[in-house]
Design a binder for these strands. Sequence first.
DNA 1: ATGGTCGGTACCCGA
Length: 266
Amino acid sequence: MMRVITWNINSVRLRLALVLDVLKQHKPDVLCLQETKTPDEFFPAEAFHQAGYVHQHVAGMKGYNGVAILSRLPLDKPDQYQRVKRDDKRHISAVVKDPAGDFLLHNVYIPAGGYEADLTAEKFRHKLDFVDDLAAFFAAQKQNKIPAMLVGDLNIAPLEHDVWDHKKMLKVVSHTPIEVEKFARLAEQGSWYDAIRHFVPADKKLYTWWSYRAADWDTADKGRRLDHMWVTPPLKERLKSQAILRDLRGAVQPSDHVPVILDLKR
DNA sequence: ATGGTCGGTACCCGA
């Protein structure tokens, strides 16, 4: 079995012990983090190295954003397939040297988009442009035949049951029709297939994020599925199982996102 | 009716 975990950690330094616990308990081959919120010189590389994740590809900055790929399997050609080089620290890539077959892994953190679902609002515009930019990038990659996986915090909940109340959320950034439309186009341009919904029917509620502002996140359960794991067709036949580690939202000092696990047959 | 909480950083911004 080959296991990949994606997790928006909202500060890797604050939650290092929690991440190490997850690694110990769930033993992924590869861990993709978003919102690490630290420049590379302060990234806790040694702690992950000691935990067995000796292959690391990290791109951080001060205070915001930041993505990392931590792997027990060798990583090749880091960022040969990156969307843009070294600017906003929201996208890194590497080829994972899996014994069952190498695959290209993209770790993505799409901007949240602010509060105003208005095309003239700067943050919303930035989010939509970022998605368009990614779609164009993957369209240009179409000739590339290597099997691929895309994971990360995409900050869009596309399906009716990816949010707690579809009608109420239609005007809320993350579930607006224009975001969902651009999200679908991104998936189409990259030939991406939703590997989590492969296992969970579309009419079943499924969340990976619960706001910090909810007094009782668990009983209120006003979640959204913002974190995704996608594969291209060559990896579909290897899909084995998925898991969303909901309980971690109840950890001491939790991230507002929980880890998502995808297992591939080997 | 339009809240509420985080984390990093520096007294606010982004989520």
